[in-house]
Amino acid sequence: MQIVAYSCHYCAYAAADLAGVLRLSYPAAIRIVEVPCTGRLDVLEVLHAFEHGADGVMVAGCLEGDCHFQAGNLNARRRVARVKELITAVGLEPERIEMFNLSSAMGRQFADYAVKMTQQTASLGPSPLRAASGRVSRTGAGGDGLGTRREGSGDVGPSTQKTPAAHQERQR
């Protein structure tokens, strides 16, 4: 299973980093993509993630009212709602994408949200698009929605990783 977690630089990505510092476990299916702000999140980019085989997408931004860029997370929430409509029309379940809000101090909550999203996605089964393509593609028309910040190699299955991708990234 592969879940792309678009995480904002100022809160969610820092929370993931904190989760790593605290040595908290969360599912290895989570692949973090850092964005400057969830307001930067592009509907087309999320669709490409699904097209190239992501089973789920979690968008993690600052707490509402605490966005570093005033209202980027509120814009992201509306875009997530739009993506839900688009993927429903395509034939995917709308529960495959969810928006979460947390501060940079909420490392434990990040791990909890990652578990929640993984369980929710697992209950839906693998994406029919991944089944159709066989594996996650790194190339294709319109760009790669997954490969920009992937850690490790291939599908790591249901095991957990002790050190989050964000933390590994910082350690280099």
């Binding site: 509907v43 087309l44 669709l47 490409h48 699904f50 097209e51 688009l86 993927i87 029309a89 395509v90 034939g91 995917l92 029919p128 698009l129 159709a132 393509s133 028309a141 319109g142």
Partner: peptide, 25 residues
């Protein structure tokens, strides 16, 4: 440009799910 991209991506995904993948650009 953005909406054309979204529609093309949606059609590619939908046709793949329907079992008849189309070449949509």
């Amino acid at each position: 440009e953005k909406e054309a991209g979204i529609l093309a991506t949606s059609l590619r995904m939908a046709s793949k799910i329907d079992g008849q993948p189309k070449d949509v650009t």
